[in-house]
């Protein structure tokens, strides 16, 4: 148990002292800071530079509201941040095998299960923190730019995406325990994302399975309704199963 705690501490410090602290939080903060402004002023900018035809087109579109800012945030999460998560975590386990650090840790009183669980846990929490921070900034920025900013649509959207993001950290934990190549794991991860997105188009699956989370963030951010309780519960359960499978797969590997 002390081994687990010490390894969790190492994993956390590693985030703070390496490139990891810049990539996800940096990306999220950038989107959070610019998103509300872009949502508010993009139509005007297009109108200004796009000539009379574009201006005419824009007149037909209603004036942007705070929901457009939320939609922008949800779109960035589902389309860009998720891809980053898949690519970054393609080497979550395998990079420590490659560098030889796993050998030094796992010949001490740290089980392979503890190694895998600690990593999945720390990075899920890290993602959660970064998303909460980014969402807070988006919320504040939206209130600033649009004057009003109801919390419900934004937070329900962000939390449903977070469950989806944690699901993908678990998927990448398993893939990086199975495969030695980060690029290979990331490629398969993107394939899994494509499959889940397609599955998300089929009504019965969206009700109970994690596939329901593929489109929910967009729908919720736009102020729509989406029953996400069951998909979030099953997603969490599936995440745990995936991490347990990753631990088992890692146990069978030779280092």
């Amino acid at each position: 148990m002390s081994g687990f705690a010490a390894f969790v501490r190492k994993e956390t410090t590693e985030i703070l002292r390496t490139w990891r602290i810049w990539v996800l939080p940096g990306m999220l903060l950038m989107f959070a800071v610019t998103g509300p402004f872009l949502a508010r002023y993009t139509p005007e900018i297009i109108g200004a530079v796009g000539g009379s035809q574009a201006a005419a087109l824009l007149k037909a579109i209603p004036k942007p509201t705070y929901l457009d800012s939320y939609a922008q945030w949800a779109k960035n999460l589902t389309q860009i941040v998720l891809f980053a998560v898949i690519i970054i975590y393609g080497g979550l386990i395998s990079s420590e095998r490659k560098s030889g650090t796993a050998v030094l840790v796992l010949t001490k009183p740290v089980s392979r299960t503890a190694f895998v669980v600690a990593k999945a846990l720390v990075h899920s929490l890290f993602l959660a923190l970064a998303v909460v921070l980014g969402t807070l900034v988006t919320w504040g920025g939206t209130a600033l730019v649009f004057g009003t900013a109801a919390g419900g649509p934004l937070w329900s959207s962000a939390m449903s995406w977070l469950a989806f993001g944690v699901l993908f950290i678990s998927i990448m934990t398993l893939l990086s325990a199975l495969l030695g190549s980060q690029a290979g794991a990331a490629g398969i991860g993107l394939g899994v994302f494509a499959i889940i997105s397609v599955a998300g188009l089929w009504e019965p699956l969206t009700k109970y399975s994690p596939a329901g989370l593929a489109n929910a963030p967009m729908v919720l951010a736009a102020g729509g309704e989406s029953a996400i309780l069951w998909p979030m519960v099953t997603s969490l359960v599936v995440s745990c199963v995936l991490v347990a499978s990753a631990a088992w797969a890692f146990k069978t590997k030779e280092l």
Binding site: V103, L104, T107, V110
Partner: peptide, 15 residues
């Protein structure tokens, strides 16, 4: 873990 607690190991190329 109890057995590993009593062992010290240096691999050929430590990482």
């Amino acid at each position: 873990n109890a057995v590993r607690a009593d062992i010290g190991f240096l691999p050929d190329v430590p990482g």
